[in-house]
Write a protein that binds this DNA or RNA. Structure first.
Lengths: 203, 203
DNA sequence: GTCTATACTTTGATAGAC
DNA sequence: GTCTATCAAAGTATAGAC
């Protein structure tokens, strides 16, 4: 049981460094130092080295973040306010972490997009999953599947783009503006006659 | 005159590497090799080393990209189609460069946001300038200044977020979806009674 | 399985000849 | 101002004791 703890500690620590410093900005020595693990443990648990560790962290972080966001949406009274809550919640976390914790894989995704194909595929799998999950939920209130997917992608793009701007500017204004636009886009897709009963899950 | 060429070659090469490999993924030796410049030239022209070179590349790339986008908008018959042209043009460039050339400073902005304050400020200055320029133009068709700024930030966020998704997924679908949402957001801000005469610059 | 020591490469940076 | 040689540090990865 002690071994499982070491592996998880390495994964958690790496995920945190990836969020703050990116993939190229994170060293393996840095990881084991912070995780209180011996250096050899990295290659014991991840024989593929930094790349394998990166793949697992990307998949894991992507899944965790998806569960976080879908949890927020499912806790909201309706889809529109759920989307708004996601942006508002992200703004709170951003301020609480001094503009460090935003999307767990965005920085890595851009770093590896043109330089490391296996890692690019790992980030693509995460984004695909997010888009599918968001489309599924939005489709509950936007019957047109193509339209639902377009809105889902736009909401995610607004969130990711706002993260870049907010972290760089050290201001939540982009997150607030993007959140308002996301809510408006979803409202428009739902349509005026359906907006009043935008609850999800109940036919 | 030969010296000025070397400095510019270093700046151009660095900008290209930053777009594709990011800040941490770009080595100084890599730069001088590609730019056909002696290694010492970097510290001759940029005594502050990699950080100073990074600052100048960020400012320069930010200004060039702003001029590119405003040029597209000013060439369009109206603001709405101009915004649409920006996303469509970005999609063409992305495909032509095999999903490598998107925003010239986005990757670097995320990498340095929590790790290098001078470089973060350089990226913030660029985003501030983009937001100001976009707000100014959108304000020509959206009288409410606060609303114009909100739309401007959202359009930039949509573009940046779509870049992340499109590069990772190697598909222009996110860019197309975000473009459609950006156009719709601008149309809604202009309002139904003004949409037919959305031309800019003429009172 | 755990942990340490080390090899090898690349990094940013500097010194000094020309 | 151009160019080369070199430094110290950090990077990933491996070998081997325990």
């Amino acid at each position: 049981m002690a071994t499982a703890g070491t592996r998880d500690r390495i994964l958690d620590t790496t995920a945190e460094f990836f969020r703050h410093n990116g993939y190229n900005g994170t060293g393996l020595k840095q990881i084991v130092a912070e995780a209180n693990a011996p250096f050899g443990s990295i290659y014991h648990f991840f024989p593929g080295g930094k790349e394998q560790l990166g793949r697992e962290v990307i998949s894991r972080s992507g899944l965790l973040y998806q569960e976080l966001l879908t949890g927020i949406i499912d806790s909201a009274p309706d889809m529109v306010s759920g989307i708004g809550d996601c942006f508002a919640g992200a703004a709170v976390v951003l301020v609480e972490t001094d503009y460090a914790d935003a999307c767990p894989i965005e920085t890595v995704a851009l770093e590896v997009a043109s330089t490391n194909e296996p890692l690019r595929e790992a980030t693509a799998a995460v984004f695909d999953s997010w888009i599918a999950a968001a489309t599924e939920r939005i489709a509950e209130v936007v019957p047109d599947q193509a339209r639902a997917r377009q809105v889902a992608i736009s909401v995610i793009a607004l969130l990711e783009g706002a993260f870049v701007l907010s972290r760089s500017l050290r201001s939540v204004e982009p997150l607030e503006a993007a959140g308002a636009t996301a809510v408006a886009a979803l409202r428009e897709a739902i349509g005026p006659e359906r907006a009043q009963r935008g609850r999800h899950g109940s036919g």
